[in-house]
Design a protein around this nucleic acid. Structure first.
Lengths: 227, 227
DNA sequence: ACCTGAACACCGTTCAAGT
DNA sequence: ACCTGAACACCGTTCAAGT
């Protein structure tokens, strides 16, 4: 329950921004988004609720820092790839996995330069488009599409996780959605009626990657043909 | 301030789910996401806070219903297009505008079949891909990419609007982001250093549409060549 | 059936007071 | 400089009581 062992891991009162952010992440992961409160976090850090405000100005800032931390860890796991397209895929998948493990992170990311991992991510995607050879005029849009897609899906996952917290209930929900689509009139809703069959068992991650592939295919069209 | 005129618009106590949702939307639009509280909404509807629970089970459900309502209005504004690609573009832009006008809506949308406008939107995109002639195997992924991109950007906009509520401060923030990117080492951050120049004045809406275009270009690659 | 509004169990945030 | 924890100004939600 409570931490009493002095042990070797520093004295109990080494309060720091990093310790706060890491405590917040653990709380978010174990108790969910509603589980992160200043009171609960203070209790976990063996301090008063107000102490946190010495290091962090806001709950929004705390969430943003936690999300950026998670993003940084995800980026660190990605192996270097020589092929820029493979590198973009690898980054995208790493973020997908990270946001699946920490769904609360999906909504707290922005262009904010304070989020240093975010800056690194944005640069990585952009520099890979340079390597691919996307011409300057097309580059900004291609980058925006990649980044928006990757972060956007993360946000969608977050919204979904918020409404269906448990994994088991997520599958059940998907099945319920499919059932309701099957009940739609095939004349007015031909697509959903048909897609209902594929929805329940489908591989989210593979489908996400297929989206990346479509964008990359579109980007290839903007390349000046080399010959 | 308060509504007293009996006028012709029904007696003051015609409380209904629709009136609640519309009141919520007005509150969200005028006061922001934090402005929607059961107390404030009840006051606006001249009733008690608990009365709302007769029609709506939850704040989440209220947000979802408000977002779906806004989505429905947006879809209704779109002119019929005969070209399926133009139709997808038109839908995408309508949603972009709607989510810019109501940024709080971006995070409350899901596959939930209760959200009837959402169902209509999902079907529209899918049926247009059928018209384009995307083969069944590729169709599900193409649909997912389009829908994820459109809703994902909406969610990103919502996150951004949450942190930078006012329009003026949004431009200032973009400028500040660009400045910080310009200060990055061009050796380690070649892309962001260069992109900083284009960031402040850029057209969000056009760039969003360019992303749709990239996905559509990728989708075209999956078409079986007709000859 | 539908509405009221006080009451409950929380929040984020502040700030005087301590060390 | 850094920490404490009570106090303030809120929340969403419930529920006995009313009509």
């Amino acid at each position: 329950m409570t931490r009493k062992t002095p042990s070797s891991e520093r004295r109990s009162h080494a309060l720091s921004r990093e310790a706060i952010v890491e405590g917040a992440i653990e709380l978010l992961d174990t108790e969910g988004e509603r589980g992160l409160t200043f009171r609960a976090l203070a209790a976990r850090l063996c301090t008063g609720a107000g102490a946190i405000y010495w290091y962090i100005s806001d709950k929004d800032e705390l969430m943003a820092a936690a999300a950026d931390h998670v993003l940084g860890l995800a980026l660190a796991t990605v192996r270097e790839e020589s092929d820029p397209r493979a590198a973009i895929r690898a980054d995208a998948l790493a973020l997908f996995d990270a946001f699946e493990a920490h769904p609360w992170a999906g909504t707290s990311l922005s262009l904010d330069p304070q989020q240093s991992a975010m800056v690194r991510f944005l640069e990585r995607i952009g520099s890979r488009l340079i390597t691919i050879g996307v011409p300057p005029q097309a580059r900004f849009d291609a980058w925006s599409a990649c980044v928006n897609y990757i972060l956007g899906v993360a946000g969608q996952n977050a919204a979904q996780a918020r409404s269906h917290p448990h994994e088991a209930s997520r599958n059940a929900t998907l099945q319920a959605v499919a059932d309701s689509w099957k009940r739609l009139d095939p004349t007015t809703h031909p697509f959903l009626h048909e897609t209902a069959t594929h929805l329940p068992g489908h591989d989210d991650r593979a489908q996400y990657l297929a989206g990346i592939e479509l964008i990359l295919a579109g980007v290839d069209r903007t390349l000046v043909p080399v010959r």
